[in-house]
Lab assay of single mutants.
Amino acid sequence: MSIQHFRVALIPFFAAFCLPVFAHPETLVKVKDAEDQLGARVGYIELDLNSGKILESFRPEERFPMMSTFKVLLCGAVLSRVDAGQEQLGRRIHYSQNDLVEYSPVTEKHLTDGMTVRELCSAAITMSDNTAANLLLTTIGGPKELTAFLHNMGDHVTRLDRWEPELNEAIPNDERDTTMPAAMATTLRKLLTGELLTLASRQQLIDWMEADKVAGPLLRSALPAGWFIADKSGAGERGSRGIIAALGPDGKPSRIVVIYTTGSQATMDERNRQIAEIGASLIKHW
């Protein structure tokens, strides 16, 4: 067993022997301040990774656009098919120029040779490549099948209805392509620590998230040296922004954090800054 596999296998073990965790309302004060600064709703939840206990939450059962955070769930569904012998990570998928959609920095470079399922998941999570996500959605049967996968996990809230990039439209009061912070946090925890996926697939999923290259201005910008984070960000229309993450000190994750916002007129930089400040408060009061 590799060191990384050992780390993920012992996530519940280490967490069980940690000192009790206590909620700190100071972080919620910052979440509410972010709402004021952005002029928009902000949803927040913080779960203990081992027990699933909610440590703090704000608007945990209000719907927010998922945006690209759905790509972690998508690759979880792909990995479940791999575990069941219905898919192979090494299978190569070929596609054409007509398949390319807006923001496809990886797939646009491989029109000639195609990409493997493993490479597509890596591109979808680490670079948020939209064509990679659409190609992977095709392998599982489309958005409705991802929703069905989530329902089978016990998540009857999260739903995907459309493809990239239309799913980022974020129309107010439109339930399409949305989740709730509580539902997303619980589902992410199941994917990373539950028995739904094999140990190898859980490790692969967290490795992809740990290698995320496009979430630097968010929670990662607030992390002290030595902290662990595996995350996936999302951005959408109407001032929408979000991030889902597993993080913790001492090089291992111990909490799940989900943050979503929508309806702001603020710039992307300002949305990023507010999420980073929430992260800084979380870490300060850990």
Rank of each mutant, 00 (worst) to 15 (best):
E26T: 10
V29D: 15
V31P: 01
K32F: 08
A34Q: 07
A34R: 01
D36K: 15
L38A: 07
G39R: 13
I45T: 09
E46R: 05
L49E: 03
N50K: 14
N50A: 13
S51D: 15
R63K: 10
F64D: 02
M67A: 13
S68V: 02
L74D: 02
L74G: 03
G76I: 05
S80F: 13
R81V: 07
Q86N: 15
L89Y: 07
R92M: 14
H94L: 12
Y95W: 14
S96E: 15
S96V: 13
Q97I: 13
D99Q: 10
V101P: 02
S104V: 03
S104M: 02
P105F: 05
T107N: 02
T107D: 01
T107E: 01
G114P: 03
V117K: 01
L120F: 04
L120I: 05
A123S: 10
I125V: 11
N134E: 02
L135A: 06
L135I: 12
T138R: 14
T138D: 15
I140S: 05
G141R: 06
T147Q: 10
F149P: 01
N152C: 11
G154C: 06
H156T: 15
H156I: 10
V157K: 11
T158V: 04
P165Y: 05
P165H: 06
L167W: 01
A170W: 10
N173S: 12
D174P: 01
P181T: 04
A185P: 00
A185R: 03
A185F: 01
G194F: 08
T198K: 12
A200M: 10
Q204P: 04
Q204H: 12
I206G: 09
E210T: 09
E210Y: 14
D212Q: 08
K213N: 10
G216N: 10
L218N: 03
L219I: 13
R220S: 04
P224V: 04
A225V: 13
G226A: 09
G226T: 12
F228T: 07
F228S: 07
A230C: 09
R238Q: 13
R241S: 07
R241M: 04
G242Q: 02
A245G: 11
D250S: 14
G251N: 12
S254I: 10
I256D: 03
V257C: 09
T261L: 15
T261Q: 08
A266G: 13
M268R: 07
D269T: 13
R271D: 07
N272G: 06
R273V: 11
L282G: 04
